[in-house]
Design a protein around this nucleic acid. Structure first.
Lengths: 217, 217
DNA sequence: ACCTGAACACCGTTCAAGT
DNA sequence: ACCTGAACACCGTTCAAGT
């Protein structure tokens, strides 16, 4: 017997709801739920059991997709780096071709991501992922962000706007300034009234650093 | 009956061992044990029960001296800032009177502390202490470090070696660079072979920043 | 192949009871 | 005043059992 279109749709939806987690969706659902939970209550408050509750599954189910709690957090961190790299690429795509302006756009995209998703950003700098080689895809995601920074610095050097010499040192320096600023804001060592003000004040601190690595002419 | 001096000493020591924690020493002992435990196993591995075990006391005893686990960590952090401020003062005492050199000495003392006590440094930047006004003595200890930085920047401006304008912006900028660098090292975004190399490479990154805030002449 | 139910060792916190 | 013993609710992890 044929079902009318509305009923068929309802059936499909019900079947989907019931079996969705049998098709590899649980992994995604757990990462998404964990990210949301962290952004709401902070990283310290995150429990595997709470994440499972949010997704509507018993907590040992998570172990089918993640070796342990650290692996779940690593997935949250990795997703963060992917989103960050995408945001930086978008910002660079919209920027002019003047190296100094491009570095500014890159740094603003970085700070903007961090102040929008402070808890996820904190996970991305968590102390758990130092064990070498445990999370290679996380390390690749980090490297992608670093390469974006290094490429822009290289471009600036090639055009003669930035100091010649070790590209890496300038790229690391840029990362230091960006991350250091974000941390001071996140830990309330600096009080800012809004995300806009956070970026505005960042540029105040960033300009002298740019001056320091620029070629005077 | 009189006891011979060696026996009296033994008795006093035993009595001291047995009753020392009744004189307010338990607080100190807990902070010291917590700092050691963190430096050994990382902040995440720290439990109140383990700290109590190390000190040789049942774990609820800690609650006589700290409202909760966070308060104990706040004490560890506060002690860290005090030690750091002392180290900076010592470094400035031994430095020349040339502003730029003094800023270098200050920054080196900061980085040196952080790479010597990475876990304690991490606690000092823990996310738990943001609740306003909960740990006023911790906030005072942080402010003491900041004031040391600000005073040196002011001195450099007064002598015409650093850009005029908002002292605070330059002081915050310096803090950003120092903290950002320490974090990149601690989180293994930069690999350094030794503490000495860590400071050496820091100076490489620091010099351009100094150039950026220096007055050319 | 994927999830549940039950169990284990451990944790932070509370509180009545001991000295 | 300061510490202990016992209890509570909760956690991460494991594993046999269900579909």
């Amino acid at each position: 017997m044929l079902l009318s279109p509305p009923m068929r749709r309802a059936k499909v939806a019900a079947a989907k709801k019931k079996t969705a987690y049998h098709h590899g969706d649980l992994r995604r659902a757990l990462v998404t739920a964990a990210t949301a939970a962290i952004e709401e209550a902070g990283e310290g408050a995150l429990t595997l059991r709470e994440v499972a509750r949010r997704v509507g599954v018993t907590h040992p189910a998570a172990y089918r997709h993640f070796e342990d709690k650290t692996a779940l957090l690593a997935a949250v961190a990795e997703e963060g780096y992917v989103v960050l790299a995408d945001a930086i690429e978008r910002a660079l795509g919209a920027a002019s071709s003047r190296p100094r302006e491009r570095l500014r756009a890159l740094a603003v995209a970085y700070v903007d991501f961090a102040v929008r998703s402070p808890a996820q950003y904190a996970v991305m700098w968590g102390p758990r992922f130092n064990t070498d080689g445990r999370f290679p895809s996380l390390e690749a995601a980090i490297r992608r962000v670093y390469e974006l920074v290094a490429r822009e610095v290289e471009r600036g050097q090639a055009e003669g706007d930035l100091r010649p010499g070790q590209t890496r040192d300038l790229a690391i320096g840029l990362w230091v300034v960006g991350h250091g600023y974000v941390e001071l804001v996140a830990r309330r060592r600096i009080r800012v009234k809004s995300r806009e003000k956070a970026i505005e004040y960042f540029l105040t601190l960033f300009e002298p650093w740019l001056d320091g690595i620029a070629v005077k002419r």
